[in-house]
Write a protein that binds this DNA or RNA. Structure first.
Length: 589
RNA sequence: GGUUCCGUAGCUCAGUUGGAUAGAGCAACAGCCUUCUAAGCUGUGGGUCGCGCGUUCGAGUCGCGCCGGGAUCACCA
């Protein structure tokens, strides 16, 4: 069954066409003035400009051309030439009935499913996950789930930073610290120890010091560069040590990401594309795509219509080692060879915009990426502290992701105790609930703000459990679940909707019906905040409805049945949308 | 300096991609728990959409110019 808005659009596209105008003006949208109508078509106004006619005349013609149908109850012209559409309650009910009976809530699978690789997360090995990593993880996860729900074949890849200069820094500084380790003995040819020479905590400390040193000490920086080159060049001991470092980092990351319910299909990294680099370089060379500039090997990516100078795409540094741009290009090469995707999305901070512009141009110009491969940088805003600078704890260090999440979960736990509804819950259940509530607060707050906007990281914002928050959504969902549970316990059957009896009931019904539009818009613009806004409004409406109509004590059985259906459908939509946002819902809280 | 993003209620943000009377949350104030979860609901106050000009029947949304803020501009990622 087609969404009502689609049916109406079809009718008006035809009507515009039959009245002698371009059908494109027939798009119908949800009304912003609900007290006047349910839907509106503003095409007559835009058409008036092009056809140089009075919009009212166009609207009149169009309305009289609308084919007879069973959907519309009334159309009228308002204001300058708006076509206001009121639909029949029976149609609304029929559509909701369909949504409620369908596993996919009436959302059809995309007719042209795409194979999409989403590159998100992107943490660096040895560098602790901190609050700056949450946006990519949360946004990428939501986009992955949304695309998948709409029928696309999606592969989520964490794309670890495991191959750049930071690895050289760690190896060089470890070598200085413990030169006796077998990894540094070039004549060593035995088995390297099973145990990692460093713990994750050591590693993070080494990284932090090494990174400071490299910034101030030129000698250390050149040692790090040398180690990077030798690692990439295949020095056996370095490779073995590197493997250990990567492994313990991954273990630590998995724990962090699983706390956030972020799951990657692939745990690939920059290093995985390394084996493709020789063929990539060879390909670029024989086709004359590269040239030497200031000792480095680069690809020219300028285009005639450029308004400003773009730096060339760096392929090999003057010291002979490769860098992130090289691995990014060879990763495209690798992904095409291994997965042949239709699209590759990069969910990365918007500060890297120039890099991706260069990368995409380089890939196209060298014909590595064909014109049919869609490459997109899904940029998001920078996260700042209250002072407009990166978020810091009181002692000045960046807050660890794990500590941060844990503190939110603790607050959620305290809230459960404070509210006192969970007195008879086991400690375990209380813990599970506080995790879900805490994570919902964090994820909802993150997804709610438009991805392109910078945002101020305010810890209070994430520990807010009232108002427009994740916990409010969970609370509403749980409240509905409780009603449904009681109905089932009392063996009340409910399958049929009735036409709405009150304004609030109709509002709720119309909102439920918007789901299809919301999900498709969110997908089109890669904006999960649209889903958040939608389920929040839906919850507001449901809660109003809940307070106005007492469902279980309703004496008219068919009325009670209808309200239970309405509740059930609201619940399903909330759970589904929350799941798309990567948020789990408890049974009670 | 070039490029680019942002500026909406006291604070944090939406705003259906040009539509009718700009909406939420927090904060403030006044109400609602012997009926389905009060992490809730109802109501009140709060706006020069940074400023100006332009395009248009219509501009928070598009264009230009200012003012203010951020990001970025090849061997880091």
């Amino acid at each position: 069954m087609k969404p009502i808005i689609q049916e109406l659009s079809d009718l008006f596209v035809t009507a515009f066409h039959d009245a002698g105008f371009d059908g494109k003006y027939g798009d119908v949208v949800i009304s912003q003035r609900r007290e006047l109508c349910h839907f509106q078509c503003n095409g007559a106004l835009s058409a008036a400009k092009v056809y140089k006619l009075n919009p009212n005349d166009i609207a009149t013609k169009v309305i009289s051309s609308v084919k007879p149908n069973l959907i519309i109850s009334n159309t009228s012209i308002a204001g300058a030439g708006f076509i206001n559409i009121v639909i029949k309650d029976e149609v609304l009910v029929e559509y909701l009935q369909f949504m409620n009976s369908d596993d996919r809530l009436g959302i059809s699978l995309d007719l042209f499913p795409k194979k999409i690789i989403i590159d998100y997360g992107g943490p660096n090995v040895a560098k602790p996950l901190h609050v700056g990593h949450i946006r990519s993880a949360i946004l990428g996860e939501a986009l992955k789930r949304l695309s998948r729900f709409l029928g696309h074949d999606v592969i989520g890849d964490i794309h670890l930073g495991d191959w750049g200069l930071q690895m050289g820094m760690i190896i060089a500084s470890l070598q200085q610290q413990s030169p006796d380790l077998p990894y540094f003995d070039e004549s060593f040819n035995g088995e390297y120890p099973e145990e990692s020479p460093v713990s994750i905590t050591d590693l993070q400390e080494i990284y932090s010091n090494a990174s400071k040193d490299a910034k101030t000490n030129i000698e250390k920086l050149s040692e790090a560069r040398k180690a990077t080159f030798e690692l990439q060049d295949g020095r056996v001991g370095y490779r073995a040590l590197w493997k250990k470092i990567v492994d313990i980092s991954i273990t630590d990351m998995k724990a962090n990401y699983s706390l956030l319910d972020v799951e990657f299909d692939l745990w690939k990294g920059e290093s995985d594309s390394h084996e493709f680099i020789p063929q990539l370089l060879n390909y670029l060379q024989i086709n004359n795509y590269t040239y030497k500039s200031e000792g480095a090997s680069v690809i020219d990516i300028r285009e005639d219509q450029d308004k400003h100078e773009l730096p060339p795409f760096m392929l090999i540094k003057s010291d002979g080692s490769i860098l992130y741009s090289t691995t990014d290009l060879s990763t495209i090469w690798e992904r095409i060879k291994e997965y042949d995707p239709d699209e590759i999305w990069y969910v990365v901070d918007k500060r890297q915009e120039i890099h991706f512009t260069q990368l995409f141009r380089a890939a196209r110009k060298t014909k590595i990426a064909s014109n049919t491969l869609h490459l997109e940088h899904i940029a998001f805003g920078t996260m700042n502290g209250l002072d407009g600078r990166p978020y810091k704890t009181r002692d000045g260090s960046v807050m660890r992701l794990n500590d941060f999440i844990q503190s939110i979960i603790d607050k959620a736990y305290n809230r459960i105790i404070e509210v006192g509804v969970a007195k008879d819950f086991s400690v375990n259940e209380k813990r599970e609930i506080s995790q879900m509530v805490g994570v919902s607060a964090l994820k909802f707050a993150d997804l709610l703000s438009h991805r392109l906007k910078d945002y101020i990281f305010d810890i209070d914002k994430f520990t807010e459990f009232e108002g427009k928050t994740g916990p409010y959504l969970l609370y509403t969902t749980v409240r509905i679940k409780s009603i449904i549970r009681k109905a089932i316990e009392n063996e009340i059957d409910f399958t049929c909707f009735q036409v709405p009896k009150s304004f609030i009931e109709r509002e709720l019904m119309l909102k439920l019906m918007e789901l299809d539009d919301v999900l498709n818009q969110a997908f089109k613009y890669k904006e999960p905040n649209q889903i958040c806004e939608y389920i929040y409004t839906l919850s507001l409406l449901f809660n109003s409805f809940y307070h106005e109509h007492h469902i279980l004590s309703e004496t008219d059985n068919s009325q009670r049945e209808s309200w239970l259906c309405l509740s059930r459908l609201t619940e399903k939509i909330l759970v589904t949308c929350l799941d798309i946002c990567g948020i789990r819902t408890p049974e009670r809280m």
